[in-house]
């Protein structure tokens, strides 16, 4: 369970507050207009931003002061999810070991993760030699290898076409469900949320609220969200 305990994030004259709990093992959409602070919220949970006050708590443990890599969190960014000069194998292996030679067992784990995302045998390629969809799959494979209970998705598939994006979201939802991971997913598109996220958080006017049932929110959006969705 993720708990945001009276969290207050300040960036210049922008303030965002959150005081809520997200149950474990579900997929949660983070919705709101652009510039309202969805990415800021994720950055604070992941440890890239220091909150002014309040705590980030995972399963009863305060993780507010920890470095990003020491948190129970795997994150996919909007871009730059892979190092372009390293092969797929090297990119993935960084999760398992950063010095010394890889063991046979570690190679097998990398191959297994690649098999999960449907990229068997592409270990030796560099990201530049992969399509956009394949690059996204490598990034998802890395999330699988990181083996963390909380996944943060900051619109990593925004640059893909609609069909490919749905495919990737389905892949993430399936793998997360298999592993019992909690997913927090920033989304511009209510269709994405409806597709894989039963719950949603709303970011509007400097506050994060929720979680609420995605379907009922989309059926009868609150005023701030209505203005954003239009109609």
């Amino acid at each position: 369970m993720l708990q945001l305990d009276r969290l207050r994030i300040v960036q210049g004259d922008f303030t965002l507050t959150a005081d809520l709990q997200v149950p474990g093992g579900v997929c949660v959409a983070v919705m709101g207009a652009s510039g309202d602070g969805k990415s800021t919220l994720l950055a604070a949970i992941a440890g890239f931003l220091e909150p002014a006050t309040g705590r980030v708590v995972w399963d009863g443990e305060d993780i507010t002061g920890r470095a990003p890599a020491k948190r129970p969190i795997a994150m996919l960014f909007q871009d730059q999810n892979l190092f372009p000069h390293l092969t797929v194998q090297q990119n993935l292996m960084l999760v398992l070991r950063q010095r010394g030679r890889a063991t046979e067992a570690e190679r097998a784990r990398v191959a297994e993760a690649l098999a999960h995302v449907g990229l068997t045998g592409l270990e030796a390629r560099k990201p530049g030699a992969l399509s956009g969809g394949q690059q996204s799959r490598v990034a998802v494979a890395r999330v699988l290898l990181q083996d963390k209970p909380l996944w943060l998705l900051d619109e990593p598939f925004a640059a893909l076409g609609p069909a490919l994006k749905q495919e990737m979201l389905d892949l993430v939802a399936r793998e997360a469900a298999d592993r019992g991971a909690t997913v927090l997913m920033v989304s511009h598109d209510p269709a994405d949320a409806a597709r894989i996220a039963p719950l949603c958080l709303l970011v509007a006017e400097g506050a994060v609220t929720g979680p609420e049932d995605t379907r009922s929110v989309l059926a009868d959006p609150p005023p701030a969200l209505r203005r954003y969705l239009g109609g």
Partner: peptide, 25 residues
């Protein structure tokens, strides 16, 4: 600017950062 966040997310720092990111880039 390009890879700082990713490096931090993966806990790459010090000698390992130079080996995998700094020197090659």
């Amino acid at each position: 600017a390009d890879y700082g966040r990713l490096s931090r997310a993966l806990g790459l720092q010090g000698v390992a950062w130079w080996r995998w990111v700094g020197v090659p880039r």
